[in-house]
Amino acid sequence: MITSFYMPTRIVAGPGALATIGTLARDLGMSRVLVVSDPVISAQGFHAEALAALAEAGIAVARFDECGIDARCSYIDQQGERVRREGIDGVVCVGGGSVMCTGKGIAIVATNRKPMAECTGVGRFDRKALPMIMVPTTAGSGSEVSQWTIVKDEERHLKLLGGGPLSFPDAALLDPATLRSLPMHVAALPAVDALTHGVEAYLSGIASPLTDAVALAAVRLQQASLRASITADDDRARADNLVASCMANIACGNARLGHGHALSLPLEGQLDLPHPYGVGVLLPHVMSFNLAVLPEKVRPLAEALDVETAGLSRQEMIAACAEAVRALYADIDFPDRFTAEQLPRDRVREMAARAVPGLYAGIAAQGFDPATAHDRTVIASPAARRMTVRQAEEIFERCL
């Protein structure tokens, strides 16, 4: 089997990494940048430090601080036009996953001169995005090293993914100082998202020894650092968790994401469920579903999750993996079930059908009619095991 592994983003990690942002921007040829953030992050001290470092390096700064929970196509299109109009030659993102996806979308639209919705799918644009520097302020999405951006088309109530090798960020700065002000409940959401990235990359049908090594190392480091990163004043754990989330996205960027993300997508688009809740609640179920056909991967994943495997059968190890994830959730106060408001029981079948196009369909998903799906229709996913609409429906039921 031919395998491919590509990771062009430069990663600078550790205490003080943020101080290098001005020099890095200058080295990338940036002279006037758009700094993308949100109202909460832009009020933090480290955000001001980043702006000061850019100014000291002689970089002119324009700002967009209005990102919300989702990366919205309308914001991306407006700011892409602004970037062209004002002669901006680089994008710097300081924020969580939605901020980085917004900035990445702006960098794509600015050079390709078409709306973001038309850039969704795999490689649906042919011009390299503007140079980008990413400063994640959560240990979660891993968007700082990802070619993909997830956006919301507000008009159609769809969550869409777009990207390709032309939209990798140029640099990622991982500084634990950016995590210090995060409340526990805010820090938990992206951390769970990152865990799903490592696990789903490991359980992908296009995984390779390269992606497996990175994915398992990410899960192991997350298991060791995630709790303390969120619940204690521990900069070392924060630094490790940032690196682990970055590694998890490097793995899934090459091995792709599986059923958890495919099934979560319609919940996010149609029911406005925040992404981490969708993929996090689904994770124990889709993990068990795929491990059933990957006997050689059960013990390594169990050990990465700190499961004591001695004397356990393969099926017991699979169950123990799911319990280890749920125990982690309990420690960081993350739910392991959907409420009736988050996923109404009378919409379970519809959501299973809407998952059929999968995560990577992009704009093609807009033309899909869920009424055409039947029980045996297969959900598009690179996961190791095929999942039908009926099986997805059963998993949703178990999540209620």
Rank of each mutant, 00 (worst) to 15 (best):
D193W: 05
I150E: 00
A187D: 03
H157S: 13
P169E: 02
E200Q: 00
G164A: 06
C246N: 15
V199Q: 02
V243N: 13
G260W: 03
V243R: 15
N254L: 11
L242R: 12
A188W: 01
A232V: 13
T178V: 13
E154D: 14
A171Q: 06
L189R: 12
G205S: 10
M184P: 04
H259Y: 12
V199P: 07
A218S: 15
A213G: 13
Q222M: 15
L179V: 06
N254P: 01
A215R: 09
L242P: 13
L182I: 06
P176F: 04
D234L: 09
T211E: 01
A213H: 11
A248L: 15
A224W: 02
G258W: 00
L158K: 15
G260I: 04
A218G: 02
S229I: 11
I150C: 00
L173C: 07
A201G: 08
A191W: 04
R256N: 09
R156G: 08
L174I: 03
E200T: 02
R180M: 10
I250R: 04
L161K: 02
L173T: 09
V214S: 01
Y202N: 06
L257C: 06
A213W: 07
L195A: 03
D240V: 09
S167N: 13
V186K: 07
S229L: 07
A207S: 09
A262K: 06
A232H: 07
D175M: 09
A255H: 05
L221V: 09
K152N: 03
V151F: 00
L179A: 10
H259V: 10
G164M: 01
H259N: 04
L174T: 10
A207Q: 08
T178M: 05
N254S: 03
A191I: 03
S167R: 13
A228M: 06
V243A: 15
V199A: 05
T231A: 15
D170K: 14
G253R: 11
L210M: 14
G205F: 02
E154W: 00
I150F: 02
E200A: 00
N249L: 12
L160H: 11
E200F: 02
A172Y: 08
L221E: 14
A228P: 07
P183V: 06
L257P: 01
I250E: 04
L210G: 07
A172M: 11
A191G: 14
V214I: 15
D240E: 14
A215G: 11
H197N: 04
D233I: 12
V219E: 01
I250T: 12
A217Q: 13
T211M: 12
P165M: 04
K152D: 07
T196P: 00
P183W: 03
A191V: 03
A172H: 14
S204D: 06
